[in-house]
Design a protein around this nucleic acid. Structure first.
Length: 181
DNA sequence: CTAATGATGAACT
DNA sequence: GTTCATCATTAGG
C-alpha cells in the first residue's frame, strides 16, 4: 500500500514560470479489484499508465473541467494507483494563486481538481516519470511522527465506504474536514 | 453554516 | 444518451 507512504512526501513541479512544491496531505488508493477504479475494467486507452510500473503519473480529465493527478503504485500489469487529493502549499505560492485566480491560500490545493490547476498539471503530463523531469515526488529524508487517519473515500458513488482514504490528522489543508470516525 | 445546481469533455452502453 | 475519483456559485436557515 503506497497511499499512506506518500503522505508527507514533497510534490515538486517545474514550470516555465517557476518552481512550485507542496507536501502531500491526503491520498486515496485504487486497485484493479475496486469497482470505483478506472482499472476495474482492465487496461484501456485512457488508464494505461495504471498498468505500468510504479512511479509514473496518471492524469485524466474529470467532469469535462478538472484534471486529477494519480501516482501509479504497483508492478507492471497490476493496475494500481493513488489519487493525490490535497497538498499543503510550500514553494511558489504566488504562482499558485495566479494559476488558481483566488486570494486565500487554504483553497489553493484542497482538492484533486484544485491542486492540478494550481500546479498546472494537465494531460500533457500523463505517463510522465515522477523520478525525474518537470514533475517529481521526493520522499522525506526522515519521517516525523505523522498522525495518519484512514477513512471512507469522498466524492464517489461506487464502492463508497471502503476505508481507502488516507490523510494527515488535524491538517488544515485537506479537502474535507468530516470523517475521522 | 449546509444543500442544490450547472459547467463541460471523454469513455462507455 | 449516461456516467463521472469536481468545483464555484447560488439560495436558504
Amino acid at each position: 500500500m503506497l497511499a499512506p507512504v506518500l503522505l508527507g512526501c514533497l510534490l515538486r513541479r517545474d514550470t516555465s514560470a517557476g518552481l512550485i512544491t507542496g507536501i502531500i496531505v491526503e491520498t486515496e488508493a485504487y486497485t484493479e479489484e475496486d469497482p470505483a477504479s478506472h482499472a476495474f475494467v482492465g487496461r484501456t486507452e485512457r488508464n494505461w499508465p495504471m498498468f505500468e510500473n510504479g512511479g509514473m503519473a496518471y492524469v485524466y480529465l474529470i467532469y469535462g473541467i478538472h484534471n486529477c493527478f494519480n501516482v501509479t503504485a504497483g508492478m507492471e500489469n497490476s493496475g494500481e494507483a493513488v489519487l493525490i487529493r490535497a497538498l499543503q502549499p510550500a514553494e511558489g505560492v504566488e504562482l499558485m494563486k495566479k494559476n488558481r485566480m483566488v486570494q486565500g491560500i487554504t483553497d489553493l490545493c484542497s482538492g484533486p481538481g484544485k491542486l492540478c490547476q494550481a500546479l498546472s498539471i494537465d494531460r500533457n503530463l500523463n505517463g510522465a516519470s515522477l523520478t525525474h523531469g518537470e514533475i517529481q515526488i521526493q520522499m522525506p529524508c526522515f519521517r516525523e511522527e505523522l498522525d495518519i487517519v484512514r477513512t471512507e473515500r469522498v466524492g464517489i458513488t461506487k464502492a463508497a465506504g471502503l476505508p481507502r482514504r488516507f490523510l494527515i490528522n488535524n491538517s488544515k489543508w485537506i479537502s474535507r474536514r468530516i470523517n475521522s470516525f
